[in-house]
Every structure is written in structure tokens, then in C-alpha cells.
């Protein structure tokens, strides 16, 4: 299972990533040889930023996008 995830990560993610979602605070992104992620200076934890879903709920982002598109 881990190998499957690693392969997906290697194919799709390069460098720092930004987390979003209610569960993002519970999940750290970790650089390992298999993951293909670039390690930051903070050990093997990849430098990530997090956008809070509590402050930016999906439905709110939908509304903002709609406003920007002229609704």
C-alpha cells in the first residue's frame, strides 16, 4: 500500500505542497527516498503550508469563485 502511495506521489508532486482540509492538521507530509519529495531543513518533514478549511470552507470558496465569475 505504501509503495502505491509513493508511486503516486513521485509522479505528481514536486517540492513543497500546501495542505487543505479538516484532516490536514493530523497528517504530515514526510520526505523519504521513496516519496520523491524534497526534504526541507526541518528533518524529513517537507516544508508545507496549510490553508484552514474551517476558515475557508468549500462552500464559501464556491461562492467566491462564482462571484468572481460574474454570478
Amino acid at each position: 500500500m505504501s509503495e502505491l502511495l509513493s508511486a503516486e506521489i513521485q509522479n505528481c508532486i514536486e517540492g513543497p505542497v500546501v495542505k487543505y482540509g479538516y484532516l490536514s492538521e493530523q497528517i504530515d507530509v514526510v520526505a523519504t527516498p521513496q516519496s520523491g519529495l524534497t526534504s526541507s531543513t526541518t528533518g524529513n518533514r517537507v516544508m508545507t503550508d496549510t490553508i484552514s478549511e474551517a476558515q475557508n470552507p468549500k462552500s464559501f470558496l464556491l461562492a467566491i469563485e462564482a462571484l468572481e465569475r460574474g454570478l
Partner: peptide
Amino acid sequence: CLYSQLSKIMNTKMKSEKPLTFLHFGI
């Protein structure tokens, strides 16, 4: 929609328009 809005939030914060990857860990 999420990509569009999350990019704008980060671009404002970082003051750049570099394409980013977002990991979405929703419920």
C-alpha cells in the same frame, strides 16, 4: 474551484504566482 481559490489564497500570501500542488485531506 478549489484549485482556483486555494491558488489565489497562496499567491496573495506568498506574493508570487508559482503553480502549487495542494493536498486535500477532507472529511
